[in-house]
Design a protein around this nucleic acid. Structure first.
Lengths: 208, 208
DNA sequence: GTCTATACTTGGATAGAC
DNA sequence: GTCTATCCAAGTATAGAC
């Protein structure tokens, strides 16, 4: 292993090119989809040579997974920070609506959908993607369990099934939004869900 | 235009090869996804030459759209037949759960998702796919409006938003099922929705 | 770490014989 | 209507110079 390049301040940093490739992959997956994420196109976006995709990541798919990890880490930090202030079902719904709206607007949701749909034709990639999606289902399950702890709703539905339904709704609304090239539908559904928040609180007492 | 080939009985029929290509496209989209739907692979499945894709359809994408139309027609006939016997919200939910389960099991849902996700990288294909998805949203809206006509639920939610949410749930559950290579989650959510049927009837009187 | 060059493969699409 | 042959573009991946 050679020494890492260092910035003018002497602080260690990662290879700029490697980071640029990850960011290019994020951009392309968000805006142009899985099919457009080729080594040549990605390298062009990153302003470097095509061969560096293989030098740094070994394969295009590995770069794509790195891009997934990159946005996952950002999203997870954002979600964790937001969930701390949730103490009721309606607050959880408010939060969910807000982060979903942000993810659809930023393209993070699109990236996720493209990786899932794209990995269908490649079993190996599929299992790697699956491993990266599962934490989100678990996050949703935990958040629902905490917020609806004392609600009779989960007795009927089950936190796991409700979490799966929420994740599915997230992914499906993203598909529809991308098809329309317009987030009107998703926002309308989100707003309606938000307007049901008050109802949720009626069914569950406020947590301590 | 040359005369159509005729079977031994003298009945006019479409070119067998053309039909075989459509069926091959349906199979490949269902099981292997958009990325695997290449002219060569499709022709191999259909047992004919690759050049015939372009002779019969002009391009791969046109063949894919023909495949979409083929399954859409079948699904629509199935849905229309089933909707005739629906006279209450709970019956509509039962029906929805049944046809969704069938579509996920058969792969028709996967075909739809692959075409939507795949068309992201091709705006022209995207608009063609969009035109083929819209009838389904409209079908859902109409079915919801009819079944929930007298229910206070739609006053809160709106048939359009509810229809979009239903379609999104359908597409999202398909994505999760394909990722898991297993329909357990989707079926579990479906069953939970079904168990809520009785609740829906309490909120809406039975239609004449 | 990065670039150029290149080998190899696969895919879209067309021309022409049958 | 179908096949063979072929062209061309685009993709993955590697070797070797700098």
């Amino acid at each position: 292993m050679s020494a890492r390049p260092r910035s003018a301040t002497g602080k260690a940093r990662l290879s700029t090119t490697k980071v640029a490739l990850v960011e290019a992959a994020v951009d392309v997956l968000r805006a142009e989809g899985f099919a457009a994420a080729t080594a040549r196109h990605l390298a062009e976006r990153a302003g470097c040579n095509q061969g560096l995709v293989f030098y740094h990541f070994g394969s295009v798919n590995e770069l794509l997974l790195a891009a997934m990890d990159h946005v996952s880490a950002e999203r997870r930090a954002r979600y964790d920070a937001a969930i701390a202030s949730v103490h009721s079902p309606s607050e959880l719904i408010e939060l969910a609506v807000r982060v979903f709206s942000e993810d659809v607007a930023s393209g993070d949701a699109a990236l996720l959908v493209e990786m899932i749909a794209g990995s269908v034709s490649n079993p190996e990639l599929g299992t790697a993607v699956k491993a990266r999606v599962e934490p989100w289902s678990e996050f949703a399950t935990g958040a629902l369990r905490a917020a609806f702890e004392r609600s009779p709703l989960l007795g009927r539905m089950g936190a796991d099934e409700l979490a799966d339904a929420v994740v599915a709704l997230y992914l499906g609304l993203e598909l529809l939004s991308h098809l329309d090239r317009d987030t009107t539908k998703a926002i309308a559904v989100f707003e309606k869900v938000r307007s049901l928040s008050s109802l949720a609180d009626l069914l569950a007492p406020r947590l301590p």
